[in-house]
Amino acid sequence: MRRLARQDAPEFSVAARAAKEALSHVRSFQSARTAPGPVVPPGLRDVQPGPPVRSIYDAGGSETLPGKLVRKEGDPESGDVAADEAYVGLGHTHRLFADIFGRNSIDGAGLPLDATVHFGKLYDNAFWDGRQMVFGDGDGQVFERFTRSLSVIGHELTHGVTQFSAGLAYRNQAGALNESMSDVFGALVEQYVKKQPVSKASWLIGEGLFTPQVQGSALRSMKAPGTAYDDDVLGKDPQPDSMDSYVRTSADNGGVHINSGIPNRAFYLTAESLGGNAWEAPGRIWYETLTGGSLPATATFRVFARATAAAAVELFGSGSTEHDAVRKAWETVKVKV
């Protein structure tokens, strides 16, 4: 049926459309069967994405969410740098998912985008709490404010997309895939805004977050995992770049931010091989894999790699340049497809 759905010739158009619709229903059914989060009704996959509905709150140094509303959709700049960066960053992230992937906000059903800034005192983190994004101001010694990085804003929102689609468990390899999804689409938000092709992009996550005292350029490098920082106090970036150096640990939910370097690099290698813009073919393949409905919540790297290859075949055909690029990328990072 997938082969039939790809037929472009006019004589096959009716059959191709029927096959595509049938596959869409299968995917929706699979999604409903496997997704642990709220299930988006099948019809919503075809809904035209609406504009973002953003609300930015200020916690004022407390840890109470959401805090005081300081800027809502359509308001002029608030004058608070962090609040305005969050507002703009949420808009950019919404636009990538809407324009490129046809997704109607985080949940596919127009979920309002809420974010809180100035969370806690000297809080050096950003997170997704299951409903909204939260950003700290940084401690000023290691970290600047977390809204400085668009890839970090995209990263947090993508945790929401993952929660409402594949629902990847936040532990071990599934957790590292969850983290990698956030890095992949966080990087794509930045590249899409800057209109950067693969070759011009930094492929860094969290560039500009470290203070000048830190020896490092970013939190992670998708192009060269393990090279983002090397600092006397913080130590060296621990990310592996292939299964040969996979890190077995009980810390960090089984190394979710560490082993994500492996699938991150697989995405980069796919994009590098194809050239052009990473949000096009590579982004579509990864997005389809994440949201298509057949990825289990406990997927391993191998299961995910096979799913990306299947998505490449479905979108571009078996033996296509895109299919080959995906297979070779996983081969390079030593994950068997």
């Binding site: 983190n125 997704w128 936040y170 956030s182």
Partner: peptide, 18 residues
Amino acid sequence: KTVRAAAAAVEGSQPDRF
């Protein structure tokens, strides 16, 4: 007593937390 047990006891999805 362990971070692993603490993580297992967390309800809902809260990525990137300390």
